[in-house]
Design a protein around this nucleic acid. Structure first.
Length: 494
RNA sequence: GGCGCUAUGGCCGAGCGGCUAGGCAGAGGUCUGCAAAACCUUUUACAGCGGUUCGAAUCCGCUUAGCGCCUCCA
């Protein structure tokens, strides 16, 4: 390994050296989507950011257990209804149909963007028992109380008895919160407006409900992440990630639940990704400015001039740091598209390029320069996963690749050993770490048509050797040419 | 109102005390049957006003503009 990995820890608000609790193992939990609708690009950005974190840790040799949940219950909308059941009612479907539909969509989208799936993808409903258990434990420990069939977390009591630690993550002061809370959804059952639900009694019309000793109800949103991270990663684990907007109250409450039930706050390092913006404003479903991945790819959106491929979008996102906001615009996307083509061409050349001895003599200056460029890739990623800088360094290497390709730089000047290292490192960072791949952005149908045009000309000229050759070459690719009376057709070989 | 963040060249976007970021766009050149690509060179910067320092996009203060969280949100 070259240098040390440093991460910006939201908990301490500092960049810290990353030291796993039990190396070489790393436990990472990321808050996944609530599957009540299609994921939008903002969601995608967060998951792609953590995809790179996961990839880089593995690249460095860590054995990562990556857990990312699916929220299928407990997440309430502003009207106080469960998001899933609300959508189910609207579409006249079973809540689980909604869950399945959008979870499938989410997975499809992440696959398109070449994200590595998590090792465990637990769902909230699948862990109801555990949630009930944790709620009981919190009651026993005195940090939760039952009120009218619901169970709430006693924030102030927890705060007093645990070093005033409510607000430790988000930097909020409990007094400020108290003086400014707005009391929504008739929380008359709560002792304090700061308290949050662990278990909620279901209204009669509520479809998703389970029987417990407290009531027919459903679990609170914050609880699932505490339960599932603890179950699969332990009471203490390495990394917890999520979008900035989850920092408060969601993650703050998670810490409180963890500490309240077993004495440990959960993760050692908290990583938060920043928002994707459109014209300077946060992309969100509620603001109505969100883009669906599909819209971006097809270009069917009023703000878009054309469609962009998944890798172009991935590249575009990697060009900024995960903790900075990233603004979406046609110009930025178009620049990314061209930039990505340049990088992809470099990747393609590098994949195919093999060492060859030529008349070049080892050039100290080149060797040093290239060696430094390769080290820089590590330095950039080690610095809190700086993918933007990494890409900058990759482009510098692309110049060298192109020069080798055109012969402006001789292989001999680089030397075999460095060349092999260059190939391995360059492709390692581009493909394995950043998760970029060369996409065949070529319309194979028009390619076939071009070849068939040749075929037709050759036939017209009675150049049957050429005709036979073209037909054989296409057949080798699994395509049969069919000479019809009026035209020439093709089909996949059966 | 509280807490926090950001302002970099035509566009995007790194850097966060001295060392060419990078991409896109623009200009010139090399190469080339043409075109493209590639390579080389090059023009536009650090919101404003003060301060700290031998030296500041980079640290501190103020001003201005914008954003986020505080309420569902990745």
């Amino acid at each position: 390994m070259i240098g040390k990995l440093k991460v910006f820890n939201s908990l301490t608000r500092q960049k810290e050296e990353f030291k796993p609790l039990t190396p070489p193992h790393v436990g990472m939990y990321v808050c996944g989507p609530t599957v009540y609708s299609n994921v939008h690009l903002g969601n995608v950005r967060t998951f792609l950011s953590f995809d790179v974190v996961n990839r880089y840790l593995r690249f460095l040799g860590y054995k990562v257990r990556y857990v990312r949940n699916i929220t299928d219950v407990g997440h309430l909308s502003d009207t106080g209804e469960d998001k899933i059941s609300k959508k189910a009612k609207l579409d006249q479907l079973e809540p689980m149909e909604i869950v399945q539909m959008y979870a499938n969509d989410f997975h499809d989208v992440m696959t398109l963007f070449n994200a590595i799936p998590p090792d465990i993808e637990p769902s909230a409903i699948g862990h109801l028992m555990e949630q009930v258990e944790m709620t009981k434990k919190l009651i026993i420990n005195g940090y939760a109380y039952e009120s009218n069939g619901s169970v709430y977390f006693d924030v102030e009591k927890y705060h007093k008895e645990n070093d005033n630690s409510y607000g430790i993550l988000s930097g909020r002061k409990i007094e400020d919160l108290l003086s400014e809370t707005r009391d929504l959804d008739g929380g008359g059952d709560k002792r304090s407006p700061l308290d949050f639900a662990l278990w909620k009694k279901a209204a009669p019309e509520h479809i998703m409900r389970w029987k417990t000793e407290w009531s027919d109800g459903f679990p609170g949103w914050h609880l699932e992440c505490s339960v599932m991270s603890t179950k699969y990663l332990g009471e203490e684990f390495d990394i917890h990630g999520g979008g900035m907007d989850l920092k408060f109250p969601h993650h703050e409450c998670e810490i409180a639940q963890n500490a309240g039930s077993h004495g440990h706050g959960g993760a050692k390092y908290w990583l938060h990704t920043n928002m994707l913006t459109v014209n300077g404003q946060k992309m969100s479903k509620s603001l109505g400015n969100s883009f669906l991945p599909r819209e971006l790819m097809s270009g069917e959106h009023e703000l878009l001039e054309r469609g962009y491929s998944p890798m172009t979008i991935r590249f575009f996102m990697m060009q900024s740091h995960y903790a900075s906001t990233l603004d979406f615009s046609n110009d930025a996307l178009e620049a990314a598209r061209k930039g990505y083509i340049r990088l992809a061409n470099g990747m393609r050349l590098m994949q195919e390029m093999e060492w060859q001895q030529d008349d070049g003599k080892l050039n100290e200056k080149q060797v040093e320069q290239i060696g430094k460029m390769l080290d820089n890739l590590y330095h950039a990623m080690n610095d809190d996963f700086n993918t933007a800088l990494t890409i900058g360094h990759l482009f510098n290497i692309v110049k060298k690749i192109n020069s080798l390709h055109t012969g402006q730089l001789k292989f001999g000047e680089v030397g075999e050993e460095l060349f092999q290292r260059m190939k391995e490192t360059f492709l390692g960072f581009a493909e394995d770490v950043l998760g970029l791949k060369v996409e065949a952005d070529v319309d194979y149908k028009s390619l076939i048509d071009t070849i068939l045009g040749e075929y037709k000309d050759a036939k017209f000229n009675r150049d049957f050797d050429r005709v036979d050759k073209l037909r054989a070459e296409l057949k080798a690719e699994g395509i049969v040419v069919k000479d019809m009376k009026e035209k020439i057709e093709w089909a996949f070989e059966e």
